[in-house]
């Protein structure tokens, strides 16, 4: 897995926040069946959301391991977002339960290495919830803008 996080600024007028902190890098690990669809819906509806997020599609949030999150931070991500199906909606029955248990460990570990809890976020977003994807991204971007770029120890 090689993430190229060198980011070239896309021209997106009318988006003041981006211009202020367009160096922020967000890695988004999105479940194929729900959240990726949600992002798609947001895109199709031409909703504007911060372009700082680099989306990586995974088949299920249950496939995501804590190491992926850590690798993203090590490679220079300022925030990592994970999106999965709502509880009960997992395409593979219980993947999102597994992820949710794992996510707690991720939070606990990040904290010990001086990475703020807020830099890591996960949310259940269905394929139809384009609006929720957009607002989540905006919120996350805002949070990260406040925190500034991540400086690893």
């Amino acid at each position: 897995m090689v993430l190229n996080l060198r980011y070239t600024v896309q021209k997106k007028p009318n988006y003041e926040v981006i211009l202020m902190s367009d160096e922020l890098k967000i890695v988004g690990l999105l479940c194929n069946w729900c959240c990726y669809g949600g992002a798609d819906t947001a895109g199709t509806a031409r909703m504007q959301y911060p372009p700082n997020v680099r989306i990586i599609r995974v088949m299920c949030s249950g496939r995501i391991t804590p190491s992926m999150i850590f690798k993203a931070f090590q490679e220079g991500a300022d925030g990592v977002f994970v999106g999965g199906c709502h509880i009960g909606d997992c395409h593979y029955d219980a993947g999102n339960y597994k992820w949710s248990r794992r996510s707690k460990i991720v939070e606990d570990i990040l904290e010990e290495f001086g990475i703020e809890r807020e830099r890591f976020r996960h949310e259940w977003i269905s394929a139809s919830e384009g609006e929720k994807f957009k607002t989540t991204m905006e919120e996350f971007h805002k949070t990260l803008s406040k925190l500034g770029p991540l400086e690893l120890k």
Partner: peptide, 24 residues
């Protein structure tokens, strides 16, 4: 992707962090 011989010391999050997530 985790074997990072160029980087010594390794980034704690990508070394102990991974171990922690496996068995802490």
């Amino acid at each position: 992707f985790f074997k990072d011989e160029q980087n010594i010391p390794p980034s704690p999050i990508a070394f102990q962090g991974v171990r922690l997530s496996h068995m802490s």
